[in-house]
Amino acid sequence: NKVRNRAEIDWEELEADLIGADLGAKLTMTIVDELQDLGRKISADDVVETAKKHIAAILPEDLADLQPREDGLPHVILMVGVNGTGKTTSTAKLAQSLKKQGHSVVVAAADTFRAAAVEQLEVWADRVQIPVVKGAPNADPSSVCYKAHQQAIATGAQFLILDTAGRLHTRHNLMAELEKIERTIGKQDPSAPHTKMIVVDATTGGNALQQAREFNKAIALDSLVVTKLDGSGKGGIIVSIYQELQIAPRYIGMGEEAHQFKRFKKQEFVEEIM
């Protein structure tokens, strides 16, 4: 670890390390300011401890596993995010994880836009042995979600995961499409969707916060998945996302295979990032 091995503190380099973990300029400044205010010689441990303390203070306690509904209707999970972050892969991984816990799961191929998006989810569904509901090519994604919801209710499935198309948060018409999906899902169960999860790529820099802000404006998110943590990205942006928007990190993705997925653990994250 770079910070630990350093004999003397170079403030600019310290800033670089913290920013390098995508903690963002604001949190970085807070940490640096606090260290400078200590008014004594700073050790590497001071840095690590101060940063950990701040991150731990910001992030919420670990969330429990997602639970089936008590009313017998499916727990509907809506997966959203910008293009290519890992929504489809995470949908399949989450489906498998819930299935392994003994729950019945259905997934919906609501990306009717991207080339072979439906086929991609179908291959996954086949791999993890989960039923998938799809619509006609270029069908309205809301109608696919409605149909999947209907089927999930009819078959008594405990979970329904909706895999939506990637969309940039700057596209208002596509954000409106998500709002429509949300309304449509509310028709057969006013309390649905129950979990609204944004999927963020750990390699993304500060823009991830902007993504979360805009998706949150459209559909009030509650959960976050950080993917590609098997890469060099540390995912520090989730700290700013929680701090500003209270969207709680719930799962992490650490590879392209179905089992490379687990619940977010604050303690592990804090240790990993410093």
Partner: peptide, 16 residues
């Protein structure tokens, strides 16, 4: 050869 339906995806675009 890894991503599910990656070949399909390129083939669909190529056809377009």
């Amino acid at each position: 050869l890894y991503r599910p339906a990656a070949i399909d995806q390129l083939a669909t675009l190529a056809k377009q």
